[in-house]
Design a binder for these strands. Structure first.
Lengths: 338, 338
DNA sequence: CTGAAAGCGCTAACAC
DNA sequence: GTGTTAGCGCTTTCAG
């Protein structure tokens, strides 16, 4: 345990070659004879050699690690299946590479300071920014660091830096489709349970329904939640207090929609008989709900894998094009009058 | 952007001192004159200097970073408030230090490989292992790396290495108390909805109820879930199929207990009239449920802060003592016959 | 208190 | 193909 770690020097000695050759084998350069390669590999096994990542990074300027930046408070973050899926997508995308993955928590001020230290070309080669906020405090940090960044969602006004790319969905169009659907199904007093005020995606979905409803849109019938079930439940309560005869609700997340359903059940309001409901996300829980939830599908997991692809492309010196995946409405029972 | 980053050399030149002095200021050594310190600080501001972490680590052997190891599949992990709380505790604990925090995902084989690379004395100074499994595949990796590890929960048979410590709760005793309570309240056919088979904590809770029930314990009345609501719902369904006249249920998590409540509501089984229910965790959702959930409280957040304290102590060369926090029963409506 | 200098372990450019 | 060598940017003796 106290024993000194084997270095490249030790390996070279054991293999009877020079440091340079060992390094070449390590970075599998083509300019190595089979014999030398074999000898080095054996020596690595014997010595239990593991490269010192710092020495390597110091000399090469690479880190072989990317960071995933998380800028929402823990509870909000951790209970949201969206993040789980996004992260799975990222994990999937990374499988094809040999990059390391590091999660950077930046939900509180203190965490932001800590994370800022890590957003540095000498720590991570690139950053994937999940859950961007409007006027996101970490965007300037990313820009200043010079690290390439892929934002999942809206990067905010005037792209922070030339090394920022985005991959997202048609949030606004999704909201629009949901709004149109509610209207078509006959809803005339449509309420909205939006997500966190500062969440970029939520704002776009809200703009979308507003577009769809036009004059029928009532700004008084908008409540904000945190994407969670409980917040949807409470928001629905407030909406019902204010407007007992509303006949449609668009929720910016499926979980809030489920909370809203629950609240209405409690109030003996029939869905879809009295009120039509549309969610957003298309998570499993929505399909299993009673009534089955109409929702706007977005390919979250795919966004994750794409983010990785774009980032690796950027690391390779390419200039990836921003991607926007289409959302589409999934009509189920909660929005269709029987 | 393309501009070369300022190095310690630049700072030294601007400040009119030597590299050594700058380094001393950076590591706030006491052996520096006020004048020199001020000059260096000014120069740092002017040049926008930021230390190169790799160079620093290479020279010093420290990393100033700890890793949090997560060995459960994403969905399971991310929807569990327990992790959120644990992580908050860790975040809190870290606030007093200037250590960086890095989350290491190791839920799949691929992720495990990736994480293993990072569990290395040259990457992280220490590891906090959340959610240990029985025969956890990452424990040998941790041991082999020589990195100090604090395990939140049971480290498994024969402590992996002399540099492993644990902080946990009296899981078994908690299960025992729950079991006793159910008996005292008159339950005679008690079922158990345990957590994942390989989760160390879940196993202990199960052993605890078994202790309490003694001869009344029926191994056929045990089902396993993944700590999630849905899995509790389904497990309850299976139990009811098998034993429609059970009169008590202990669930290894509050979320599974809520799922079980839901399932029983569906079957028009009255809680606590027909069946008594006890959960585990004491999450908020349980207190808000109908009926309010009796549960076993464990100080999760505190476990997180303690893990950090133990780890920093270990990094400081001390040998912290393992900690076990007491659980206690919180009696609410779900387990008390009216 | 401060400067000089010797590494930390590795990569990459340069000879051969 | 392979060995040699000059750094990468910092910490940490060791003198002074």
């Amino acid at each position: 345990m106290t024993e000194r770690r084997a270095t490249i020097e030790d390996v070279a000695r054991v293999a009877g070659v020079s440091r340079g050759t060992v390094s070449r084998v390590l970075n599998d350069s083509p300019r190595v004879s089979e014999a030398a390669r074999a000898a080095v590999q054996r020596a690595i096994g014997e010595t239990g050699y593991r490269a010192n990542p710092h020495a390597r990074s110091l000399a090469s300027g690479r880190n072989d690690t990317i960071g995933v930046l998380l800028t929402r408070p823990h509870p909000e973050l951790f209970e949201d299946p969206t993040f789980s899926l996004l992260l799975q997508g990222i994990s999937d995308g990374l499988a094809a590479t040999d990059l390391g993955l590091v999660l950077l928590l930046a939900g509180t001020d203190d965490e932001q300071r800590r994370a800022a230290r890590f957003i540095d070309p000498r720590h991570v080669d690139g950053v994937i920014h999940i859950s961007p906020l409007i006027d996101d405090p970490m965007m300037p940090v990313c820009a200043a660091s010079g690290v390439p960044v892929v934002v999942c969602g809206d990067a905010g006004n005037g792209r922070a830096s030339s090394r920022t790319w985005t991959v997202g969905t048609t949030d606004r169009l999704g909201g629009y489709e949901a709004g149109c659907h509610l209207r078509e199904q006959g809803a005339t007093r449509v309420a909205v349970i939006a997500g966190p005020e500062r969440a970029a995606g939520s704002r776009d979905r809200l703009l979308g329904v507003r577009d769809a409803l036009g004059g029928a849109f009532d700004p008084d019938l908008v409540e904000h939640g945190d994407y969670g079930r409980e917040s949807g439940f409470r928001a629905m309560g407030r909406l019902l207090d204010r407007c007992p005869d509303l006949d449609g609700v668009f929720c910016a997340s499926d979980r809030m929609a489920l909370g809203a359903l629950e609240r209405m059940r409690l109030a003996h309001i029939d869905v879809p008989g009295d009120v039509l409901v549309v969610g957003f996300d298309d998570h499993e829980i929505g399909a299993a709900a009673t009534p089955a939830l109409t929702t706007v599908h977005q390919p979250i997991r795919r966004i994750g894998t794409t983010a990785v692809q774009m980032l690796t492309a950027a690391l390779g010196g390419e200039n990836p094009t921003d991607q926007v995946f289409p959302t589409h409405l999934v009509v189920r029972d909660s929005s269709v009058r029987r």
